[in-house]
Amino acid sequence: MIHDILFYLSIFLIITTIIPFIRHDFWIFRVFEFPRLQKLVFNAVLIALILFFSFPEILMDYIVIGLLSLNAAYLIYLIFPFTRFGSKQIVKAMNAPNENNLKVFIANVYQENRNSSAYLKLISSCNPDVVLMVETHEWWQEQMDVIGKEYPHQLKIPISNTYGMLLYSRLELFDGEVKYLVKEDIPSIETLVKLPSGQLVKLFCLHPEPPVPQENPKSTERDKEILLVAEKAKASKYPVIVMGDLNDVAWSYTTELFGKISGLLDPRRGRGFFNSFNAKYFFLRFPLDHIFCSTDFSLSSIKRLPSCNSDHFPMCVDLQFNPKAEKLNDAPVASEADLEIAEEKINAETTDS
């Protein structure tokens, strides 16, 4: 009985690792990209249980143990870059924070959450230059507008469909625009931010739909929005920061493709997972809230902040503009195949097309 249960659980786990190789946009093929760390832990537990309860006796047992071992090795390969043992894409800032630093705070507040005071305290303690809050409607705008005196430069799109966005900045914003890149009810923000040194930085803020049955059964719209921003970032003549809840994990195929197309860096690589979702369930946590930057930045700090009753942890990242870092950073590069796949995804038919 135990032998059969462990056998079928092992086969199921192996299948969940194979499924993401199928490059289909339907949610069932994309959702298994998320829990790679959880699958690795489950994989290790299964191997231990099989060896303890039913030491391999027949050929099929040895095959299953072998497949689980290969599965574990592959999962380690996928998540290793996001451990402290992986190589860093972006170097640590060589100078103390100065007039070229830009500290950003991002939070998916969970629209029905009413603990705005906790966010206000966090913003005060983090002391960021730019604050981005998503899943924000009119109530959230009313609560957060109290920081308006300290953060007078604002772009606000309060919407009750869980895709509202509030951007507050103590630094001057230029050419700020609200875009609807893929769907007419899902906004993103593009703006220039002027650092105290006078340097302009292009900022992209986004929150695409997740590929889940209750939202959108396909990842087509999410992937398209992410990759459209990647192309915009690559074409920018300014240093670039992309931030927001991408509803995709840091190690997914689409996020890796985003990095290659945009040439932007992920400060988590070589530093840790910084799992920002789900704040309510410790065993189901993934890195969904992202901050990427161009190669002319170095990193002063990156922190996952305490929960404020949302299902997401806020993130605070302090970046330092430094063109000298460009030679030291490890910029991802797109192959011809990557460019073709990205173009195909960008041109894909969507439900609003």
Rank of each mutant, 00 (worst) to 15 (best):
M1P: 01
D4W: 09
L9I: 11
T16P: 07
D25L: 04
V31C: 01
F34A: 05
F34K: 00
L37H: 06
K39C: 09
L40A: 14
V41G: 06
V41T: 15
I50R: 07
L51I: 10
F53S: 11
S54G: 13
Y74N: 03
L78A: 07
L78C: 12
F82N: 04
G86T: 03
A93Q: 07
N98P: 03
I106K: 11
N113C: 09
R114M: 09
R114S: 15
N115Q: 14
S116D: 11
S117M: 11
S117W: 13
A118Y: 12
I123T: 01
S125R: 08
V130G: 13
Y151S: 00
Y168T: 07
L173Y: 01
I186F: 02
L192M: 07
K202A: 06
E215M: 09
N216M: 08
K218H: 12
R222A: 07
I226P: 01
V229P: 00
V229Y: 01
S236K: 10
Y238Q: 13
S252F: 02
T254E: 03
L264W: 01
K280Q: 10
L305Q: 01
P306K: 14
V317L: 01
V317N: 00
Q320H: 02
K327I: 09
V333M: 11
L339Y: 04
A342H: 02
K345D: 05
I346T: 05
D352C: 00
